[in-house]
């Protein structure tokens, strides 16, 4: 009866004008049985505050233009400040230069999904499930 659901907060960095990727991925995660809290355009600090109130397992960022590294740094820093960095899984996807990928991973994103192979539905879902499983203490 009791069944833990994975809760995901999905946001787009403020001022970016797109919803396609964000809605597509949100729909995929819903279809995988997750509860997806949509935020739309947001600032890092407010995403973190929301994730805290919603006790979210995952924060997902969809970005098309600009600087995922800067946004990512601010997001992780805000999470650190609010003491939820450890318990939260961070994923990011969208369009950004390939050289940003290793930086984002190094920074602490469990999943980085630029366009192309490796960003399929199954990849995103299994990334989240694996990251949650690895956080589970034995």
């Amino acid at each position: 009866m009791a069944e833990g659901k994975i809760r995901v907060v999905m946001a787009i960095p403020a001022l970016e004008n797109h919803t396609k990727g964000y809605l597509t991925v949100s729909g995929m995660l819903r279809d995988a049985g997750m509860e997806v809290i949509l935020l739309g355009n947001e600032l890092p600090e407010r995403v973190v505050e929301t994730a805290l109130q919603e006790s979210a397992d995952v924060i997902g960022i969809s970005t098309y233009c600009g600087s995922p590294v800067v946004f990512g740094e601010d997001l992780l820093e805000a999470a650190e400040k609010k003491n939820i960095r450890e318990k939260t899984i961070f994923i990011i996807g969208g369009i950004f230069p390939p050289e940003d990928v290793p930086n984002l991973i190094k920074m602490g994103f469990a999943g980085v999904f630029p366009p192309g192979p490796g960003s399929r539905r199954e990849d995103i879902i299994s990334c989240i499930r694996n990251a949650i499983a690895s956080k589970k203490p034995n």
Partner: peptide
């Protein structure tokens, strides 16, 4: 699927930094 899209909160994000407002 057992999943859900929770899309109410995004209309209330103006209050997200107000510590006296708790939205779930």
């Amino acid at each position: 699927t057992g999943g859900a899209i929770l899309g109410d909160r995004l209309r209330m994000q103006g209050h997200s930094l107000d510590q006296e407002v708790f939205i779930r």
